[in-house]
Design a protein around this nucleic acid. Structure first.
Lengths: 219, 219
DNA sequence: GTGTATGAAATCGTATACGATCCAGTGTGA
DNA sequence: TCACACTGGATCGTATACGATTTCATACAC
């Protein structure tokens, strides 16, 4: 069956926001979006409220909705949250990763490694996303999986605007990926995998925190 | 300013669902709720979609909304998620807990201890909630705090229906609380507090898992 | 020049209305 | 008896309409 109009509106807006077409601060006017979609404002409202619940949009009464702002603090909090959730997701997922998936992850990481000589940030980011998805995809707890996705979405919104890559981090990142894969392949204890996956993200987080003269994350 | 009608509807439904007035499976009919609130269906729809995004309600197209079902698997997944998030929230909160808060937490735990002789499950649950709130309330990361609240809400929905207390667990619980408070007071490392807070919840989770002949949580 | 009042335009919030869809109960034929 | 088509009622999905609120530009007073 054709998706409902509110569903279509949701998907369109979600895509535009995470892809960066609508960047943080962009004003989402009900009437305008409704006109573009060829529907009335009611389904658009619903879609926007959904996006609000996911943290991609902020909504103010009688004023309207804007794509969530990307201030540094929020970004860092989101990263910290994702470090925790994704670490757990990866650890829980590990026992269910089969050889094909492991091989796929190694291939992606190799591609990332190859990219280091002629660096291309968007491509690198994309491969990085794919890599991590393979690692947490098998997590048997759907709530955790959902939280991971929401975390990635939030980061995507903000990254599309203004957060720069840290020099030298790409190379480290590839190494850490390899280490993670080794742990998974060796069927290391869950706690150890969790710790490694979390640290992988926390390292980046702490680099940003240091750049902002803030103390490192205690976790 | 008076809250918007959609806000009122949201609050009413949220309360009724988490308090257990509307138990899992209860059918939320737009027209009925609208009539009760003295408003039209539009704001009610919005409220229900919000509850859906929070996982308290399931919504099916052209069919309607029901309070989220409470099957065992879901319940256990929610507990596992909360163990992880709340553990982190407690650890991050710890450095910001002042002496008054610590004293309040000790008082609550003492009340729980006193309750052991003449056990009263609802009262015990309530004190337990208050205790944990004091412990994670100061978490400086608002995303994590929000996730903790959502987790508690989800658990509240399901608990109000059918999950029974585990014999002897209350006494253990009080002891674990005391241990946690000691760690916080001693300004133990964040990782250690996280571990203890998580374990406190995981122990209960594993008891349920064992009762359902399922393997223990690896985290 | 600064600050405040004012009015119009833009936008939101919600009621109402009606077509679309689902569901349950009934009747028919094999 | 069972499977299946049919129908009426309940409920949902969304368009439209209009009052309420905010915002911003303009004009005026000091």
């Amino acid at each position: 069956m054709a998706p409902s109009k509110s569903e279509s509106a949701y998907r369109l807006l979600h895509e535009r926001i995470t892809e960066g077409t609508f960047s943080p601060g962009y004003r989402l006017v009900l009437g305008t979006i409704a006109a573009e979609l060829g529907c009335s404002v009611v389904p658009v409202r619903e879609a926007i409220r959904r996006l609000e619940a996911e943290g991609l949009v902020t909504f103010e009464r009688n004023v309207g909705a804007t794509v969530a702002a990307a201030d540094t603090t929020l970004y860092l909090h989101t990263m910290q949250t994702l470090a925790i959730i994704e670490g757990a997701a990866t650890a829980l997922s590990a026992p269910f990763i089969d050889e094909n998936q492991l091989a796929a992850a190694r291939a992606i990481n190799q591609a990332m490694s190859d990219l280091l000589v002629d660096f291309n940030a968007p491509r690198f980011t994309q491969l990085n996303n794919e890599f991590h998805q393979v690692l947490y995809r098998n997590c048997p707890n759907p709530h955790i999986l959902e939280l991971v996705h929401r975390g990635w979405d939030r980061l995507a919104v903000m990254r599309s605007s203004s957060f720069t890559h840290i020099p030298g981090r790409a190379r480290e990142s590839v190494k850490e990926h390899a280490g993670l894969l080794d742990l998974i392949e060796a069927k290391a204890p869950a706690a150890q995998i969790e710790q490694a996956a979390r640290a992988h993200r926390t390292t980046t987080l702490n680099a940003y925190l240091a750049a902002a003269s803030l103390p490192a994350s205690p976790l």
